[in-house]
């Protein structure tokens, strides 16, 4: 049984919603939490909107099995700001400040799944900035990539690329 939770972002929702499309959309997260959002928010999420369009708007409850109830409020918050035209550098900086690297990655995948281009583009820049000074080992762990070099091959490559290994941050155990 799905638990009903209204959007945690009510305080942020914009006042000028279209009264003719008052029917709210229910987004169901992977862990069965329901988030009620305005149809304008759903429009920002291409995956959700195309689902609504395909069913001629008859279905307003949309399961999003790939997105957790932890990530969905962030996505909704971003979409609300986007509709209001209030995506500023300051907002974006505040938005990611509270997210650790794993959360940024989850949110990035959520944005991809929901096909929200702006959020996807923004988060790819955030990830790039966060891994820019990280070690090779950190990046492997972060992206779940297996090292396919032999120790000799890797040592040789590292020697050739020695100049790129200056200014690398030490790996922080807490981050992973």
């Amino acid at each position: 049984m799905a638990e009903e939770v209204s959007s945690q972002m009510n305080s942020l929702s914009i006042s000028e919603t279209n009264p003719s499309s008052s029917a709210t959309i229910s987004l169901v997260s992977g862990d069965d939490i329901v988030f009620k959002v305005e149809p304008t928010i759903a429009k920002e999420m291409e995956t959700v909107q195309s689902f609504i369009d395909e069913t001629d708007g008859k279905i307003t409850t949309i399961p999003l099995p790939n997105i957790s109830s932890h990530d969905l409020p962030y996505v909704i918050e971003y979409c609300e700001k986007s509709i209001a035209g209030k995506i500023t550098k300051e907002f974006e900086a505040e938005f990611v400040k509270k997210l650790n690297n794993e959360e940024v990655k989850e949110l990035f995948l959520a944005a991809n799944y929901l096909n929200i281009k702006k959020l996807l583009d923004f988060l790819s820049q955030v990830i790039a900035d966060r891994i820019a000074n990280k070690s090779v080992e950190y990046v492997r762990r972060y992206f779940g990539i297996e090292n396919d070099f032999t120790p000799e091959e890797e040592a040789k490559l590292r020697e050739e690329l020695a100049w790129t290994f200056t200014g690398v941050d030490p790996d922080d155990e807490d981050e992973n």
Partner: peptide, 15 residues
Amino acid sequence: KLSLKSLKRFECVCK
């Protein structure tokens, strides 16, 4: 979106 220096270093990540 990475700098070229970071990109070159990450060539050591995998083949």
